[in-house]
Nucleic acid binder design. Structure first.
Lengths: 322, 322
DNA sequence: CTGAAAGCGCTTACAG
DNA sequence: CTGAAAGCGCTTACAG
């Protein structure tokens, strides 16, 4: 039914090797021969079967992106740019939402082993046997897997310090930290570290809720924070959805923002169209995505890469700080 | 380096056919033999090479999802559920953001032809040669491709009528329609049709801006609408981002909502955490995604499917109607 | 229940 | 510049 390279070869009166060379645009083909083959391909409406060439070449030209949940602004944006950058290198993107399930993450690793994908970008929450990852082309975001696996992150530590000091300079006296703790060691934890250090430096008591949280449990965490620290006048919120929930709650409680309460979030609200924006630490998501893909492509080709890539964030001023 | 089925066969002292049968869990294998093979697989740390079996079986177990842009709440949600449902059938999801570029959409079709994916779900804006799609396992969302290609949609027409009448019953006298028109014939256009009919029924003049729009041009369209119809007291907004932009603009203009202006959007804001929600027609995104995948799987297996599947929306009351 | 063999549709040295 | 042939790692009738 579907024409194969053999049909094309017969139709054009050449060998299949020659057809293959035409398909792959190799130069060692005479002009006339090439024309004949091209003609036959058109006539038969031929498309090369990729599975076959993949098997021979041992590559799929597919990258996997593993995110905790695609239905989340941060990860959706990340996916957008990963796909765009991958495309530039001729790769397509297989998207896997782990839904916080460890099996899904392991599945990706076995996919790489089975040659279903050439490599993967991990934004992950679970532990993996270092051994498993040793030989896999993987790049991680915000997380150091401990070996030579390259990872891309933003300057969590410096950015958090800067944000906190910004609020304090503008009068915040009771400064809180609201976040969701990653399950595994991750660069994100540097935000907590930065907070604790700043509190110590300014001799302020710690007002922190920073727990492991599932997507969807934002309200409970926020309620917990509000109950414990009703009198804060400056809050650093780590994470996009959490900051939205917290902000909405404060509005409902009719807090005067920023007069009585300043808020800065890590990962802002990307409302390009509104003037009513939150002050936030904006991560260079696009650049993180592109860097990750570039590193991955290098790894796939066994080229050298650095291990840690740190990209600069930006403190974007909005209406939630004085 | 990487062990193949041959290595396993040798190690276990059996034929490769037998190993294959064990891998594929076929019953025609003796208990002892199976154990031997399993043991050998473990010892060699063997993973079957999927490219090879795909070539033989002529299937990839990959579905493509083509969306205009992944970095958008509606499509991100859709992707989430498509992936989840596909997983149930043993498929993974290749995600392609067309970025409104027609080449990207054509690429998917050629991918199907090249056997890189088994089928695709299209949420698309461009025309395609019907001929091209005839033999491809494709399911579309919100769009009738004109042939036997199945598609899933929501009850755009009825839902829009219901929403408009709801506002009118609650006192709206000057009712507008703000939307972005799809480039091609699509079920989404029934929203405009419903609006025009309701206006006629109530003898109200038409106040409509409904243009073809790129993602990112929301502000201009909204500004246009506001300039043309500054005195509306009820607006139906078609589309998630557009409704957000419009709502934010109205807040800035210090309109009293819902006293002086009611708003209903098609595709609401999915803020589960806030009480300050927009009244909206909520599409059954999850069900649309799952249905689309189920239909696609049927098509791949050459089973019969209906052409048009219409799912019910829900009018979710929020604080933007009286 | 099991093995030997053909073949999926390509690519790539190897000759010429 | 070009063809014939081997082989990528599997699956699946076909015998036995």
């Amino acid at each position: 039914m579907v024409p194969t390279i053999k049909d094309v070869a017969k139709h054009a009166g050449v060998g299949i090797g020659t057809v293959s060379r035409v398909i792959n645009n190799q130069k060692a083909v005479g002009e006339k021969t090439r024309a004949k083959v091209l003609g036959a391909m058109k006539e038969l409406n031929y498309s090369p079967n990729n599975m076959a060439s993949q098997l021979r070449k041992n590559e799929t030209k597919i990258l996997a992106l593993l995110v905790p949940i695609i239905n989340h602004p941060f990860f959706a944006r990340l996916a957008y740019f990963v796909e765009d950058e991958a495309d530039k290198f001729g790769y397509t993107m297989l998207l896997v939402s782990s839904q916080q399930r460890v099996e899904k993450e392991e599945e990706i690793i076995s996919r790489i082993k089975r040659r279903e994908v050439d490599g993967a970008v991990f934004v992950t929450h679970f532990m993996h046997e270092e051994e498993e990852l040793k030989n896999c082309p993987i790049v991680s975001i915000d997380r150091d897997f401990g070996g030579k696996t390259p990872y891309v992150t933003s300057d969590n530590y410096e950015a958090t310090k800067k944000a906190l000091k910004y609020m304090i300079e503008r009068g915040a006296k009771k400064v809180g930290f609201l976040g969701s703790k990653p399950i595994v060691e991750s660069e994100v934890m540097l935000r907590e570290k930065a907070y604790l250090e700043v509190m110590e430096e300014y001799h302020m008591p710690v007002r922190m809720v920073n727990q492991v949280m599932q997507h969807g449990e934002e309200m409970a965490i926020v309620a917990d924070f509000i109950e414990k620290y009703p009198d804060v006048d400056g809050v650093f919120v780590s994470g996009y959805t959490l900051s939205q929930v917290f902000h909405d709650n404060m509005i409902e409680l009719e807090k005067n923002i920023p007069e009585d309460l300043q808020i800065i979030s890590y990962d802002g609200m990307f409302k390009q169209w509104s003037t009513n924006n939150m002050t936030c630490v904006e991560q260079p998501i696009e650049e993180m995505a592109r860097q990750a893909v570039r590193l991955l492509v290098k790894k796939i080709h066994n080229e050298e890469t650095g291990v840690r890539t740190v990209l600069k964030t930006k403190l974007v001023l909005g209406s939630t700080t004085r």
